[in-house]
Computed example of a mutant assay.
Amino acid sequence: MNVGFIGTGSMGSTLVEAFASSGALVPEQTRITNRTYAKAERLAARYPGMQAVRTNAEAVAGCDLIFLCVKPLEFKTVIDEIRASLQPEQVIVSITSPVLLAHLEEWLPCKVAKVIPSITNRVWSGATLCIYGSRIEPADMQTLEELLSYISSPLRIEERYTRVVSDLSSCGPAFMAFVLQQFIDAAADETGIDREEASRLAANMLLGTGLLLTEGGLTPEELQQRVAVPGGITAEALKLLRVELDDVFHRVIHATHAKFREDLEKVDQSFTVNR
């Protein structure tokens, strides 16, 4: 199986590196391109046998799967560049949530799917959200999910839930890292503990918490109950957090959905204007 990648920005390069380091793909199976060719060339040089090409059309030629890892408003331009080179049996995989399957199926002559990866895939962890177009066959789903299983837990979802599930799996690491950074900064400011030491302690705490919530079989509610003794220190701190945070994550979800709708409208216009 040969796999192409159009776009080697933050998430595109994460996928390329994760697939290569996990053994999901050998370098000779991988072809990459980027708007700035030198960037793709530098990435390919790290994996002898990986091929960096100069054009998007070259990236799709002879590939079974092609990942489109570009910004939403760049999609129509990329599609125009590759459409004539695509064959019906090839599978285009978008990793950009505001670009709908309907957009892709209208403009492309091949099979289409959407995958929402996560930065956690870099360490072969977390979920990858999978959404399939109408032309995809069960064998195509199996091929894509077997590839993704090297670096994640593939999860099929309906497209209408893309945004909220992305909040949890893809944006979530940044949200949790922000909260953790606030905790670390407060510990250092209030007590004088070395910031690097506090960071190590907090990072290991978060890793262990994740294991308890997955392999350990605890729910978030159960974990809190196990740690917080009634009337104790943890219980007192949780009481404060419940008051201070209150509806903050409701507002976070409102913010991400509002931005998604804004991006979706812009993407839809980019396809409509160029119809």
Rank of each mutant, 00 (worst) to 15 (best):
R261I: 14
V252C: 11
Q225K: 03
L212E: 00
G172Q: 06
L212C: 09
E89S: 08
V164H: 03
E105W: 09
V248T: 07
A20D: 01
V91P: 00
V229G: 01
N204R: 04
R35W: 04
T55H: 14
I131V: 15
R122V: 11
E262H: 08
N274R: 12
T77A: 10
I253L: 11
E146V: 14
Y150C: 15
T14N: 13
Q269A: 14
F260Q: 06
L211E: 12
N121R: 09
S152I: 06
F260P: 00
E236T: 07
L213P: 11
E89K: 05
Q142N: 11
W107C: 11
P154S: 10
K266F: 05
M50Y: 08
L245R: 12
F175S: 02
F67N: 02
K111C: 04
E221G: 11
Y132C: 11
E190N: 09
L240A: 15
A40G: 05
S97Q: 06
E262K: 10
L201Q: 05
F271E: 03
R35D: 06
A61Y: 12
G232Q: 09
R226H: 10
C130G: 06
H103W: 04
E58H: 05
C130T: 09
P117F: 12
Q29T: 11
I131P: 15
V227C: 08
Y161H: 15
S199I: 08
L245Y: 02
V3E: 03
Q225H: 15
A187C: 15
F183C: 07
C63W: 02
D246L: 10
L73D: 02
L206K: 00
L108P: 00
L245I: 12
S170I: 05
V179R: 00
E146D: 15
L25N: 00
I136M: 04
R83G: 02
R200E: 04
E146K: 15
L104K: 00
Q224L: 13
V252R: 05
T219S: 06
L206E: 01
A18S: 10
L207S: 13
E58R: 06
E221N: 10
A186E: 12
A188E: 07
M1G: 04
T214V: 05
F67Q: 02
H254N: 09
A187Y: 05
K76V: 09
S21F: 07
I233V: 10
I131G: 06
V93R: 00
V99Y: 03
A40M: 08
L100F: 01
H250N: 14
S270Y: 10
I6W: 01
M176Y: 07
F271N: 02
G133V: 04
Y132H: 08
T219F: 01
L245H: 01
W124Y: 13
V248P: 08
T14G: 01
I151D: 08
H254C: 08
R35V: 08
A235S: 07
G12Y: 00
I92N: 01
L108N: 03
A203G: 01
Y150G: 13
Q224Y: 14
E81D: 08
E221T: 14
D140H: 10
L223C: 03
L211C: 06
S13L: 03
L264Q: 06
H250T: 14
S149Y: 06
S166Y: 02
I253Q: 08
E215G: 14
T143A: 15
T256D: 12
E41T: 04
A113I: 06
A255R: 12
I253A: 07
K114G: 14
E58V: 15
I136T: 05
V115M: 08
G231R: 04
